[in-house]
């Protein structure tokens, strides 16, 4: 089993051992085509709480799954503007106001000389926002996940593709969803319990 299980054996075992609860149905696929088809089938059947897990990003899968674009670029723009204003503020205030120091008669607010620092701060804040914004939106780190306990799911980082339909989906019905997934030619459809 995976790390997360071994690092937290008690919390899982004590709380859930008596009554393993169905959390999702997972269908395993061998190639990109059938995975994409399965995603389309679920989308067309009106499912929304399903996900496709793959060892690499499948291009165009967001369209097949009906996903909306992420707001991450706007967050990064905000981060970049923060860095820009912060950079202008830092250089302008320290050199022009708080610590005026005359060097070769140059003006205190020598803005051309501040450009490199302002630029670097813009980049730094944008990059930090891009990384931590991405992790936040993805709710990572998330070291406990029932998926990671499933034995066949280990191959998701290798060469297998999984479509996971959560029980929280309004359309979810164990028998009906199972039948729908089975029709998309998976390697197997299995129950995921937690």
């Amino acid at each position: 089993m995976t790390t997360e299980v071994e690092t937290r054996p008690h919390s899982v075992a004590v709380a859930e051992a008596d009554d393993p609860r169905l959390v999702a149905l997972i269908a395993e696929y061998k190639d990109v085509d059938s995975t994409v088809l399965a995603a389309r089938t679920l989308r067309d059947a009106g499912y929304t709480c399903f996900d496709v897990h793959s060892p690499f990003p499948i291009h165009g899968i967001d369209r097949h799954m009906g996903l909306k674009p992420t707001i991450l670029p706007w967050l990064v723009l905000g981060g970049g503007l923060t860095g820009l204003v912060g950079g202008i503020g830092l250089t302008g205030w320290t050199m022009g106001v708080d610590y005026q120091f005359l060097i070769s008669g140059k003006p205190f607010f020598s803005w051309p000389a501040f450009i490199p620092v302002i630029f670097e701060m813009t980049i730094l804040f944008s990059a930090l926002t891009a990384v931590f914004g991405m992790l936040l939106l993805n709710r990572l780190p998330m070291l406990y996940n029932p998926l990671l306990k499933h034995p066949s799911f280990r191959r998701v980082t290798d060469d297998r593709f999984f479509v996971v339909v959560g029980t929280e989906d309004e359309k979810f019905d164990e028998v009906e969803t199972h039948r729908l997934l089975q029709a998309t030619h998976p390697v197997a459809v299995e129950r995921l319990e937690d």
């Binding site: 997360e4 995603a39 996900d51 496709v52 897990h53 793959s54 060892p55 690499f56 990003p57 499948i58 899968i61 967001d62 799954m65 996903l67 992790l135 993805n138 990572l140 780190p141 998330m142 070291l143 406990y144 996940n145 998926l147 990671l148 799911f153 998701v156 980082t157």
Partner: peptide, 10 residues
């Protein structure tokens, strides 16, 4: 960090 290869994450 608990990466599962989710397409939403990708």
């Amino acid at each position: 960090l608990g990466w599962t290869g989710s397409s939403r994450h990708w």
